[in-house]
Design a protein around this nucleic acid. Sequence first.
RNA 1: GGUCCCGUGGUGAAGUCUGGAGUUCACGCCGGCCUGUCAAGCCGGAGGUCGCGGGUUCAAAUCCCGUCGGGACCGCCA
Length: 481
Amino acid sequence: MRTHLCGELRSANIGETVSVCGWVARRREHGEHLAFVDLRDYSGIIQCVVDNDVDVRSEYVLRITGVVRQRPDGTINDSLPTGQVELGECQVEVLRKAEAPPFPIDSRADDVDEMVRLQHRYLDLRRDRMQKNLRIRAAINSSIRGAMDSQGFVEVETPMLVPSTPEGAREFLVPSRKEPGSFYALPQSPQLFKQLLMVAGVDRYYQMARCLRDEDLRADRQYEFMQLDMEMSFVEQDDVLAAVSEAVLSATEAATGDRPQSIERITWHDAMERFGIDKPDLRFGMELVDLTDVFASTGFKAFAGAESIKGIRVPGAAGDYGRNKLDKLTDHAKSLGAKGLVWMKVVDVGEGSEASGFESPVAKFLSAEEAAALRSTMEAETGDLVLIVADEWMTTCEVLGTLRNDLGRPPVHEGPYHFVWVVRPRLAASCVPSAWDLRRRSGTEVRVLPEPIRLRGTAARRVRSRSRSSGGDLGRRREHP
RNA sequence: GGUCCCGUGGUGAAGUCUGGAGUUCACGCCGGCCUGUCAAGCCGGAGGUCGCGGGUUCAAAUCCCGUCGGGACCGCCA
């Protein structure tokens, strides 16, 4: 019925007689015997030159047979991949007429109420953006399956109709026909039964699993979503990370066209030290800088004796922050648990300027040596804004980590992606054994490190753009851990 | 379970606080003009139970109460 897709016609096709099928994206009339029809299919748009007495309107389904020809000088459209050519001598066959659509079938529909889009889902999905979403998703799933298959994983689907499990999110319930009053539960996570597969010797299992959770919605949360679930036998942590990394890198390549070199690894402790959060966004700098040594013997009361003093440098931001905004930042820091926030603007040293090189309410409490050491340690330059917190280690890290994200983070979807494994998570909130507050589930294999006593798990989580996107752990499998 | 916001021609908004004729803007739609446009241009036109119900008022899109629908957030989310 057709010889080409609309979006694939190029200069190389000039002179060929082709047939294309698609929907009328737009019609531009120019007089009695000239009109342009933009025909659209999932691959793109091709401009067709037709006689104006042809009765076609928006979203009519057509088959057009014509000759590919170079567009006349001055009429080339660089914003279209097919913009060098057009279809002439067109024979137009109306396959199906259409009513005027309730909303534009292009990017303008992004602003239309979602309920309206859902009422006419077939029109919404006809849009370029939605077509691309469907195809990217398919490509990602395919690449993940390829990566898992090539590493010897066996895809096994686990049951959807199961008994309820006590833990976790609320489950959707399905009434039983044969036993009135009884219900099946739909799995809120796929790992039911998968350990059976390990015990049975399947060795490597995976599943593109649908998860169903009957929890209240949020903008980024749905009742159902997909997870890559996997389980491996006879392995150490490196084996697990390597296997998942392969799937992640393949999926990224499928989605973006670029394959990251690798996924770097950072310990939980380093993540807190450098970024103040256990899911750091590595797309930008502004790392936390430790200043505890700089102020080890300071006379400034707010710093003296603090367990941890750290700072972040906001490049060139001094001019953007007046007293009012800085007061709000300080209040924000306090609401996050800090005792206070010290801000310092970096100014020129020398004639007519602050002798310390800092403009700040607390500059006068710093010695010349401390000011110089602060400046060099922070690698601060004129015009920068330096924010300092002195508190208990965890508080210092978390407060500055939050400020770092608030002040420096790019928009969520701004690439390139920067993946990182966070390993050796801290399992307890306190280092005092009597106050241990276990933060992860009990199945995790625990290694107790000496001096000082800290619990370290073998769990790992993968982070992308500050969002946790995967996690897991090595379970206890030995008689005596 | 809770807090807040929004429902106005097919679409998106303004009008609501401070009541006074269904008023306005952009897009779309219909008709006309137009031979190189490309989210074409110019001229004209049609199209609305202001979500629904009740109340206040001489008068309600506008104020009050209720209700339905949608959204954001809190709780919740191994």
